[in-house]
Nucleic acid binder design. Structure first.
Lengths: 205, 205
DNA sequence: GATTTAATTGACCGATAGGTCAAAATTCAG
DNA sequence: CTGAATTTTGACCTATCGGTCAATTAAATC
């Protein structure tokens, strides 16, 4: 059994291939719907060989979730209390939208997990997500108090940014089916969401 | 095998029990993750008995989706070209949010399906969803043209309403984990979304 | 080049998946 | 009450699931 941290080139390569394949399969079928055989085939390995690198299906999934959560929270971490309120929020929206555009499988993996009751990430939600959101919600709340933002509920503002941006990754099929060909959903979304949030967040006498 | 339309009381009762159980299981585990044994147990029937009423797992799922799509599209159908633009859009948002509150399992069933590539509903998206959305988007576009709404992309406005309202059903676990106890997510969401859309849709000189 | 170590595999395991079927139990019609 | 139709079930089928293991092959080390 290989050590925790891959050492050899071959371990590095195969571990990456497995995680890449698992991301594809898990994000498309959910945890229960995904099979080790599918993952193994996509990774170009036999199933026993796959289980030589990871002890179980759960372990592969856990590794993916672990690596994902950090990346997923980064845009919110970057929200700066010292910046211009509207610019900060629009910047957060934009970074979140870019994640949806560039890492749709990661978004769907997470969506699948939460949608099915988050049995394997509930702890992380409580211990990592909630504190960070509370902190940044307080920042936004302070902006509102100072009259630098129109009065809105900070938590639900954050929810709406999650919802609207992740929608373009998670419901990509539906978005494209409705728009038809000849559209760039993400580019259009950026314009729309900019006007949406600018319009409702600008403070008015 | 029972006829297409349930006739006897017992057929009526069991068919309903099966669909109710299947909704619970499919919405929580996705199609592949759900099992006939789980559905049968929840419905209080044996597996062979379940398969006496529906020919296959696919058939149960298809029946659910069929019944769901109509209900799901009703709020958009009710959007009235003759009404007040902002009130109509807020009303649509509110009806959609009520669906999320009262039928979260249906929302998750649909989300699961689309998330996993919509293999069983892609046709319905093209043939039912797209025409309806295009029609209503045209209505909104006309309002914008007439200067009765701030200039926004109608399709993406509809997407954002879907995203923000369904978020509270589909990501319920996450929303509650972040908010903590003592919150009514749907009531708060209604207030927030009202200000969000009012703020950005009101036309200004 | 030999030997040790890492990597790979085919065969296999018990559990569970969706589904079938003939027979038994129940309900219904006359 | 009786016979026909409906409903229910236990036993069973094949395929696939996650996972194991001993044996084989390929790499790295000396």
């Amino acid at each position: 059994m290989p050590n925790r941290r891959p050492k050899t080139r071959i371990q590095q390569k195969n571990s990456e291939a497995i995680l890449e394949a698992a991301l594809e399969v898990f994000s498309q079928a959910g945890f229960r719907g995904a099979t080790l055989d599918q993952i193994a085939e996509r990774a170009g390995l036999s199933k026993p060989n796959l289980l030589y690198y990871f002890p179980s299906k759960e372990a592969i999934h856990a590794e993916l979730i672990k690596g994902l959560l950090q990346v997923w929270l980064d845009p919110l971490r970057a929200l700066d209390a010292g910046g211009d309120p509207l610019a900060e929020i629009l910047g957060y929206m934009r970074r979140k939208l870019e994640l949806s555009r560039d890492f749709p499988r990661e978004s769907r993996l997470f969506a699948n997990e939460v949608l099915q009751g988050a049995p394997r990430v509930e702890g992380a939600l409580q211990e990592e997500l909630k504190p960070l959101v509370d902190e940044k919600a307080a920042v936004i709340g302070a902006w509102v108090q100072a009259g630098r933002l129109a009065p809105v509920d900070p938590h639900h503002l954050i929810f709406s940014i999650w919802a609207t941006t992740q929608h373009y990754a998670d419901f990509d099929v539906q978005v494209r089916a409705v728009l038809g060909p000849g559209h760039d959903p993400f580019a259009e979304a950026e314009r729309f969401l900019t006007t949406l949030y600018t319009g409702s967040l600008c403070p008015r006498g």
